[in-house]
């Protein structure tokens, strides 16, 4: 019994300590960001690996999610004779929820895991130590540009995803199922509010991007410097990001639309 409590306590302390480390880590990385103004090349390079290399999966998933939503929404709305409102249904669910959330999950799988693995491997092969001994702070040179690129890439990716998903549902709804194009866009524009819906969606994706990149670089940097440690860091990145994004989404939705 007492042992159980002790184990629980030890566990809680370990988690609290990890959170503390993650937070200090974030502060140090943020402190390294202003200097990046002088070296935009570093960020551009990371935008390439975080953003451009994620484009394919974002584009493909966006179009397909939109098409599926178009099909499903149409058949459901048909039951109520409201199939002309397809645009509203699709746009609101994409812009408010699916866009930011699905993009963040894909981002964790595509970019986050790669970030964690890359940094973890740099650590386990002593590249980070080597950098330190060359008087180059890995926080500024390695971590900060990656973190910043993650922050920047995520809202852009989410916007691309959302827009393509709506286009996908347009192709299915208007092109295939015969929803009136005017009704599709017109009702959508009437119902979707820029500040309430679009802007809140963008804010969500900014928050998710921040959290997802933070988790990825921290897990990589904090990884045990072994093959096993790196693989565990990669897994943890995806799992923690998914949990954090879903939890935060609930909170944000409650605050924004509640």
């Amino acid at each position: 019994m007492v042992n159980g409590f002790q184990r629980l306590g030890a566990r809680a302390l370990a988690i609290a300590e990890r959170f503390g480390r993650a937070f200090l880590f974030l502060l140090r990385a943020l402190a390294g960001m202003p200097a990046l103004v002088l070296r935009p090349g570093l960020v551009v390079q990371q935008l390439y690996s975080v953003g451009v290399l994620s484009l394919v999966i974002i584009v493909v998933s966006g179009v397909f999610v939109g098409m599926v939503l178009g099909l499903q929404g149409y058949t459901t709305l048909l039951n109520f004779g409201a199939e002309q409102s397809l645009g509203v249904l699709v746009a609101l669910s994409i812009v408010r929820e699916l866009g930011p959330v699905v993009t963040a999950l894909l981002f964790a799988g595509r970019a986050g895991s790669a970030l964690a693995a890359e940094i973890g491997l740099m650590k386990s092969t002593e590249q980070l130590s080597g950098m330190e001994m060359m008087a180059v702070d890995p926080m500024n040179r390695v971590i900060a540009p990656r973190l910043l690129a993650g922050f920047l890439a995520m809202p852009l990716l989410a916007a691309i995803f959302s827009f393509l998903a709506i286009l996908g549902s347009y192709v299915i709804g208007v092109g295939l199922l015969g929803v009136d194009a005017g009704a599709f866009w017109g009702q959508m524009q009437d119902a979707v509010e820029f500040r309430e819906d679009i802007l809140n969606g963008v804010i969500k994706s900014v928050v998710f991007g921040f959290v997802a990149s933070w988790i990825a670089v921290f897990e990589g940097y904090d990884a045990e410097p072994t093959s096993e440690g790196v693989s565990r860091a990669t897994t943890r990145t995806v799992v923690y990001t998914a949990l954090a994004v879903l939890g935060l989404d609930f909170v944000l939705t409650a605050v924004m639309f509640g």
């Binding site: 935008l47 390439y48 691309i160 524009q189 979707v192 820029f194 679009i198 969606g201």
Partner: peptide, 24 residues
């Protein structure tokens, strides 16, 4: 070049969401 394309795409998508999807 690719990063430029990426940023332009993102900006265009945001713009599209604002103009075409909502009535800003």
């Amino acid at each position: 070049i690719w990063v430029g394309v990426f940023v332009a795409m993102g900006a265009a998508a945001l713009f599209g969401l604002a103009i075409q999807v909502s009535n800003v």
